Amino acid sequence: MKSIHQSKGNDLSAFVAFLAVAAHRSFRSAAIELDMTPSAISHSIKALEQRLNVRLFNRTTRSVSLTEAGERLAIKLRPAMASVEEAVRELEGDDHTPSGTVRINASEGAIRLVLWPILARFLREYPRVHLDIFNDGKLSDIVADGFDAGIRLAEAVPKDMVAIPVMGEVRFAAVASPDYFEQHGYPVVPQDLYDHHCIRFRFESGAIYRWEFERHGAVERINAPGPLTLTDQPLMVEAAIDGIGIAFVPDHLAANALKDGRLKRVLEDWCPAYPGLCLYYSANRHVPPGLRALINMMIETRSGN
Rank of each mutant, 00 (worst) to 15 (best):
I133A: 12
L123I: 08
T101H: 08
V114C: 08
E125D: 09
I118V: 08
G93Y: 14
R128P: 11
G93N: 04
R103F: 05
I133S: 03
V129N: 00
V114H: 13
P98H: 03
A120M: 13
A106G: 07
V114G: 08
G109I: 03
E108G: 12
F134I: 09
I111W: 14
P117I: 05
S99N: 08
H96Y: 09
E125A: 10
S107A: 15
V102T: 06
L119V: 07
V102L: 05
L119N: 02
F122N: 00
P98N: 03
V114Y: 09
R121T: 14
T97P: 08
L119C: 08
V102Q: 03
T101M: 13
V102D: 00
H130Y: 07
I133R: 05
V102C: 12
A106S: 13
R121G: 14
I118H: 00
F122I: 01
L115E: 04
G109C: 12
H130G: 15
F134S: 11
L131M: 03
R121K: 12
R121C: 11
D95N: 02
G109W: 00
V129M: 00
V102G: 02
I104N: 01
I111H: 03
H96I: 13
I111P: 02
L131V: 02
L113N: 12
R128Y: 11
I118D: 02
P127S: 12
A120P: 15
P127H: 02
D94E: 10
A106K: 04
V129T: 01
N105L: 14
D132R: 02
L123Q: 08
W116I: 14
F122V: 01
D132Y: 04
G93L: 09
L113D: 14
L131I: 03
H130Q: 14
I118A: 03
I118G: 00
R124W: 10
F134K: 08
E125Y: 10
L115C: 10
D132F: 06
A106R: 09
F122Q: 01
P117G: 09
S107W: 15
F122H: 01
E125I: 07
T97C: 14
L131Q: 06
F134Y: 15
G109H: 02
E108C: 11
S99R: 04
T101R: 04
A120V: 10
T101V: 15
P98V: 01
F122A: 00
R112T: 06
I133H: 02
N105D: 11
V102A: 03
G109Y: 05
A106N: 05
S107H: 06
F134R: 11
D95Y: 00
V114P: 04
A110F: 11
I111E: 08
D94N: 11
L115W: 09
R121H: 06
W116C: 11
Y126W: 10
V102Y: 02
S107E: 13
L123M: 10
T97L: 10
L115S: 04
V102E: 03
L123C: 12
G109F: 10
D132K: 07
D94V: 13
W116V: 06
N105G: 08
L131A: 00
V129Y: 00
L123H: 14
L113P: 08
I133P: 00
Y126K: 07
I118C: 04
V102S: 04
